[in-house]
Computed example of a mutant assay.
Amino acid sequence: MSEQQWIDIFINDDRDIQLDVAGMPGYTDDRATIAQDIKHMIMETGILVELIAERSREKWLANMNQLELMVEEDVRIVPGTVEIDQTETGVIYLTAETVMGPIQWPFSIDQINGVNND
Rank of each mutant, 00 (worst) to 15 (best):
residue 5 Q to L: 05
residue 23 G to L: 09
residue 107 F to T: 00
residue 111 Q to Y: 01
residue 47 I to T: 01
residue 69 L to E: 10
residue 61 L to S: 05
residue 56 S to M: 10
residue 45 T to L: 07
residue 110 D to R: 06
residue 106 P to M: 01
residue 60 W to K: 00
residue 78 V to E: 07
residue 60 W to D: 00
residue 28 T to R: 13
residue 87 T to F: 03
residue 103 I to T: 01
residue 23 G to Y: 10
residue 74 D to A: 12
residue 115 V to M: 08
residue 8 D to I: 11
residue 54 E to N: 04
residue 6 W to K: 07
residue 9 I to F: 14
residue 105 W to A: 00
residue 85 D to M: 05
residue 95 T to N: 07
residue 65 N to H: 08
residue 28 T to Y: 10
residue 21 V to N: 13
residue 49 V to L: 06
residue 89 T to P: 03
residue 70 M to I: 12
residue 60 W to Q: 00
residue 42 I to A: 04
residue 105 W to R: 05
residue 109 I to N: 02
residue 39 K to H: 13
residue 11 I to T: 13
residue 61 L to C: 04
residue 78 V to F: 09
residue 31 R to N: 09
residue 55 R to V: 03
residue 28 T to V: 15
residue 83 E to P: 07
residue 111 Q to N: 05
residue 93 Y to E: 02
residue 16 D to N: 15
residue 9 I to R: 13
residue 78 V to G: 10
residue 80 G to K: 15
residue 83 E to L: 10
residue 5 Q to P: 00
residue 19 L to A: 12
residue 77 I to V: 14
residue 81 T to I: 07
residue 74 D to W: 12
residue 93 Y to L: 08
residue 104 Q to W: 12
residue 53 A to F: 06
residue 64 M to F: 14
residue 111 Q to D: 01
residue 56 S to C: 09
residue 17 I to V: 15
residue 63 N to W: 03
residue 117 N to I: 11
residue 43 M to T: 01
residue 98 T to C: 08
residue 75 V to D: 12
residue 112 I to K: 02
residue 75 V to W: 11
residue 77 I to A: 07
residue 10 F to H: 15
residue 75 V to C: 09
residue 16 D to P: 13
residue 70 M to Y: 07
residue 30 D to R: 04
residue 85 D to T: 06
residue 69 L to R: 13
residue 76 R to Q: 06
residue 65 N to Y: 07
residue 30 D to T: 06
residue 2 S to G: 08
residue 21 V to W: 12
residue 48 L to A: 03
residue 15 R to I: 13
residue 66 Q to W: 08
residue 58 E to T: 09
residue 73 E to P: 13
residue 109 I to Y: 00
residue 68 E to H: 08
residue 35 A to W: 08
residue 41 M to R: 13
residue 25 P to F: 11
residue 114 G to Q: 11
residue 86 Q to Y: 00
residue 76 R to L: 04
residue 63 N to E: 03
residue 52 I to H: 04
residue 115 V to A: 05
residue 7 I to S: 05
residue 25 P to W: 09
residue 84 I to W: 05
residue 96 A to L: 07
residue 2 S to M: 11
residue 7 I to N: 05
residue 34 I to M: 01
residue 32 A to F: 06
residue 104 Q to E: 11
residue 45 T to K: 08
residue 44 E to F: 15
residue 64 M to E: 03
residue 69 L to A: 12
residue 39 K to A: 08
residue 43 M to A: 08
residue 29 D to C: 11
residue 23 G to Q: 09
residue 67 L to H: 04
residue 94 L to A: 03
residue 62 A to T: 11
residue 91 V to D: 00
residue 24 M to N: 13
residue 108 S to N: 07
residue 43 M to E: 03
residue 30 D to Y: 05
residue 11 I to Q: 10
residue 112 I to M: 03
residue 82 V to G: 04
residue 52 I to F: 01
residue 95 T to I: 05
residue 115 V to W: 10
residue 65 N to V: 05
residue 99 V to E: 02
residue 57 R to W: 03
residue 48 L to V: 04
residue 25 P to K: 11
residue 93 Y to D: 02
residue 99 V to Q: 05
residue 72 E to H: 14
residue 106 P to L: 00
residue 53 A to H: 05
residue 108 S to L: 03
residue 114 G to D: 09
residue 87 T to C: 01
residue 102 P to E: 00
residue 105 W to V: 06
residue 83 E to C: 09
residue 50 E to D: 11
residue 68 E to P: 12
